[in-house]
Lab assay of single mutants.
Amino acid sequence: LQAFIKTLTGKTFTVEMEPSDTIENLKAKIQDKEGIPPDQQRLIFAGKQLEDGRTLSDYNIQKESTLHLVL
């Protein structure tokens, strides 16, 4: 599935991932794409901060969901 990552500066980019991917995997993909170390990334979806060990499906993240990236 493709999801949108929106930063506080208003920049939006897309990442490809599977519902079974962990938040940790997602942070690694963001690092590959944007060069931001995972330990500096905080991802917010539906008002909740996402925990590394959980999966996208745990948070009911669907295709074309928008996640907010806070540094």
Results as ranks from 00 to 15, higher is better:
residue 1 L to S: 06
residue 50 L to V: 05
residue 40 Q to V: 10
residue 65 S to M: 11
residue 23 I to M: 03
residue 54 R to L: 12
residue 36 I to P: 03
residue 49 Q to G: 06
residue 46 A to P: 01
residue 29 K to H: 05
residue 70 V to W: 10
residue 7 T to Q: 06
residue 71 L to S: 08
residue 44 I to N: 05
residue 71 L to G: 06
residue 63 K to E: 12
residue 10 G to N: 04
residue 67 L to Q: 02
residue 12 T to P: 04
residue 2 Q to H: 12
residue 61 I to T: 06
residue 48 K to Y: 08
residue 5 I to V: 08
residue 27 K to R: 05
residue 25 N to T: 13
residue 64 E to V: 07
residue 46 A to S: 08
residue 46 A to W: 08
residue 45 F to H: 10
residue 30 I to P: 00
residue 49 Q to I: 15
residue 7 T to V: 07
residue 55 T to E: 03
residue 53 G to C: 06
residue 22 T to E: 02
residue 16 E to R: 06
residue 3 A to M: 15
residue 26 L to T: 01
residue 49 Q to N: 11
residue 70 V to Y: 13
residue 56 L to P: 02
residue 28 A to N: 11
residue 41 Q to K: 00
residue 58 D to A: 04
residue 20 S to W: 14
residue 32 D to W: 10
residue 70 V to E: 11
residue 28 A to P: 00
residue 24 E to R: 14
residue 67 L to E: 02
residue 71 L to I: 13
residue 2 Q to D: 05
residue 56 L to A: 04
residue 69 L to A: 01
residue 67 L to M: 10
residue 1 L to T: 07
residue 48 K to Q: 14
residue 4 F to I: 15
residue 53 G to N: 12
residue 59 Y to L: 06
residue 3 A to G: 05
residue 42 R to G: 05
residue 23 I to G: 00
residue 14 T to L: 11
residue 63 K to F: 11
residue 60 N to S: 07
residue 67 L to V: 12
residue 27 K to M: 03
residue 69 L to D: 00
residue 32 D to E: 15
residue 45 F to E: 01
residue 46 A to Y: 10
residue 60 N to H: 09
residue 15 V to Y: 03
residue 36 I to D: 01
residue 31 Q to C: 09
residue 24 E to I: 09
residue 46 A to T: 04
residue 39 D to T: 10
residue 59 Y to C: 03
residue 29 K to A: 08
residue 49 Q to L: 15
residue 23 I to V: 13
residue 44 I to T: 10
residue 52 D to C: 05
residue 11 K to L: 09
residue 34 E to G: 06
residue 44 I to L: 11
residue 45 F to N: 03
residue 27 K to W: 02
residue 4 F to T: 14
residue 41 Q to L: 05
residue 45 F to K: 04
residue 37 P to W: 05
residue 15 V to H: 01
residue 24 E to M: 13
residue 8 L to Q: 14
residue 56 L to E: 01
residue 21 D to C: 04
residue 14 T to D: 04
residue 19 P to S: 11
residue 39 D to C: 11
residue 14 T to G: 05
residue 60 N to L: 11
